[in-house]
Simulated scan of single mutants.
Amino acid sequence: MENLLLLHGALGSSTTMEPLKQALQDTFLVHTLDFSGHGGKPLPQEPFTMHLFVQDILQFLEQEQISSTHIFGYSMGGYAALILAMHHPECIRSIYTLATKFAWSEEAAQKEIKLLNPTKVEEKVPAFAAALANRHTPQDWKQVMHHTAGMMLQLGQSPILSTETLPKVQLPVRVAVGDRDNMVSVEETLWAYRLLPDARLQVQPNTRHPLEALPVCELSQQIRQFIGQLTVYPSVTH
């Protein structure tokens, strides 16, 4: 079986990928990881950055002795996977991104940071606050949220995936987005698709941003189909 690495999104952890892992493990050797500061891993001394998360992936691949793998990256995980592909394409066979935000600007970052206020989260969505506390224990989920806001601010000031860098990703990529995603637009996903040399575009109908908004059985089948097509049509391009 081929390797498949599942990468979680911002404020997520490997546990959020567990249902998808279970659904795919009959087809692939499925791996998950926790990015620095997530899922109970120690908060780093340095700020959260995409490059830090890319290093997390490289360290995991080395530790598990995985020479190459397909990657499914949800949201921030997809962003990290594409950066990794720019610098270490030999590690990756293909990338499937879902709900990955590509259009980072200072205005976009400020919009997202407004949602990352721990006090307001506790007040307005206490169930979500409790889930985050459980997900990141023994770390303080509020610190994870503050670190994430700082990373988003940095991305807004200096986006890594751009008109200049996306064309460097020569690997097969599928970029997927929900048509009702309130964080990631179809337009920005289409923008990335057009810049990627070997890309496929997928718009999920009646789908919002949260990973759990998409049925696991449907998503797992789409991942199987995408990777399966690569062996039949290894250089399909748009």
Rank of each mutant, 00 (worst) to 15 (best):
T15A: 15
A99P: 05
K120H: 00
L82S: 10
P47L: 11
Q55C: 11
Y79A: 02
I57D: 01
G39K: 06
F28A: 01
H31R: 00
K101T: 03
K41D: 01
G73F: 09
V54W: 00
S94P: 09
N117D: 15
I66M: 13
A103K: 01
L82K: 07
D34N: 11
F60P: 05
K41V: 08
F72Y: 14
A81S: 12
Q25C: 13
T49Y: 06
E112K: 10
F60E: 13
P118T: 09
S67I: 10
P89I: 12
S36R: 09
G77I: 07
L6V: 07
A80C: 12
E62D: 15
F28M: 01
F35K: 10
G73D: 09
K21F: 06
K41I: 00
G77A: 10
L43E: 03
A109P: 04
A99T: 07
D56W: 02
L98H: 12
H70D: 14
T100L: 05
G78S: 01
K21G: 14
Q59C: 13
F28P: 02
S36P: 01
H8C: 12
D56R: 07
I113Y: 04
E107D: 13
T32M: 01
G37M: 09
V121Q: 06
P89T: 11
I83L: 15
D26R: 13
T32H: 00
K21N: 13
G73Y: 10
E107H: 09
S36G: 04
E122H: 08
D26E: 14
L98I: 03
F72C: 08
T100Q: 06
E18L: 13
P42R: 04
Y96A: 06
T32V: 08
K21I: 15
Y79W: 05
A108F: 07
G37D: 06
S105N: 14
A99M: 10
L6R: 05
F72D: 08
L82P: 03
A80K: 02
G77Y: 02
L29I: 08
L24D: 02
D56Y: 05
Y79E: 01
G39T: 12
F35T: 07
I71V: 14
G40V: 12
Y79N: 01
A109H: 02
H38K: 07
P44M: 05
E112A: 08
P47M: 09
A23G: 09
L24K: 05
L52M: 13
T69P: 05
L58H: 12
A10G: 13
G9A: 11
E46L: 08
S75H: 03
H51W: 14
E123Y: 08
G12T: 14
G73K: 09
D34M: 04
L20C: 13
I66Q: 13
K101V: 03
I95M: 03
A81I: 00
A10R: 02
